[in-house]
Amino acid sequence: MKTSVRRIRRSTHRRALGAGLAAVALAAGAVSCSKGDAEESPKMTPAAAVAEAAKNSDDITSLRYSMSGEVPETGRVKAEASMRMEPDLAMSMKMTALDEGADGTVEIRLVDKAMYLGGNPEMAKEMDGKSWMKFDMSALGDDALGGGAPGASQAEQNPAADSTLLTGSKDLEKVGTETVDGVETTHYKGTVPLDTLRDSLKDEDKDVREKREKSLEQYEDMGIETLTMDMWIDGEDHTKQFRVKGEGDKGPLDLTITFLDYNQPVTVKAPPAQDTFDLAEMMQEMEEG
């Protein structure tokens, strides 16, 4: 039975990790579907514009986005997702790891403090025909999962928190005006050394510091030392698109996230119980046995 668990975890780990990283790498503030004037105010410096967009991220309660690019270990990915932060955390994402062929598509759902992985025929073959695997965060400890459910901490990360990272850039510049998904935006770019950004956290209040530390940890775990960031801000000072790049010890990170809407209703349902392989129940049966 233990061998079966390891085999299932191997078959799902890479896809789950990629999905989790996709969620955390949103790294942008609030989104707007506005098509208002994106012309920068004469008094609005690049630093002020990015700071204003970061401030507006506090208004996010839910968002929908598309993503494409490359993440360490998983390789090229594309995904679409919806995420709700209030009144409780929930997420639904469909992701394809383009370098894995037919075996590279997975769906991830986070609802009621449980993560579900499914949507892949190869997974069903390993789980007696059941098409979903459940990771119950409250019932399974790190030891049982061999370090935690793949991508769990990343999936629980509020993606809006990363929007503040670009405010730490010392070489921030305005690139120009561009149309993104039919919306007129202003494009900004800068680099962010993670050690410098971490040193600056001591001057922030507790809430801001905790949010930024969680964001930094995700990139530090990839072995990335410096991030290159691009942000496209619309005429209402909301982030419409975000790109983050870096070289890690397990490969390159290069993700572009385009926000489709925000603060719209997001409903995520758990898969049917009869189609779900509950890892917590299996581990309990093993202990009792």
Rank of each mutant, 00 (worst) to 15 (best):
K2I: 01
R7V: 06
I8Q: 03
R9M: 11
S11V: 04
L17P: 00
G18V: 01
L21E: 01
A23C: 14
A25C: 12
A27P: 01
A30G: 10
A30K: 11
V31L: 08
K35R: 15
G36T: 15
G36A: 14
A38W: 06
S41I: 09
S41C: 08
K43V: 09
M44L: 15
P46N: 11
P46S: 04
A48L: 10
A51R: 14
E52W: 09
E52P: 11
K55C: 09
S57K: 14
S57W: 05
D59V: 08
M67R: 09
S68N: 10
G69S: 01
P72W: 02
T74K: 05
G75T: 01
V77H: 05
K78A: 10
A79W: 02
S82H: 07
R84G: 04
D88L: 11
D88M: 10
M95Q: 15
L98N: 08
L98S: 11
G104V: 03
G104I: 00
V106G: 08
I108F: 02
L110F: 09
L110Q: 10
V111N: 12
D112R: 07
L117W: 01
K125A: 05
K125S: 06
M127I: 03
D128E: 06
D128T: 11
G129D: 04
S131D: 10
M133L: 09
S138C: 12
L140A: 03
D143C: 03
G147W: 02
G147S: 07
G148D: 00
A149Y: 00
S153V: 11
A160T: 08
D162P: 06
D162I: 06
D162L: 13
L165S: 08
T167W: 02
T177E: 09
E178Y: 07
V180Y: 05
T185E: 11
T186G: 12
T186C: 14
T186F: 12
H187G: 03
V192E: 01
L194P: 00
D195I: 04
D195S: 13
D199V: 04
S200T: 12
D203F: 14
E204K: 09
K206T: 14
V208C: 11
S215V: 15
Y219A: 02
M222C: 03
G223Y: 00
I224T: 01
E225C: 03
M229F: 06
M229G: 03
D230C: 12
D230L: 08
M231C: 07
W232L: 07
G235D: 14
E236H: 12
D237W: 13
D237I: 02
K240C: 08
F242H: 09
F242P: 00
F242M: 13
V244F: 06
P252R: 05
D254R: 01
T256E: 07
T258A: 09
L260E: 11
L260F: 10
D261A: 15
V266Y: 02
V266I: 12
V268L: 06
A270S: 15
P272Q: 14
A273N: 03
F277L: 01
D278V: 05
L279V: 07
L279C: 07
M282E: 13
E287L: 05
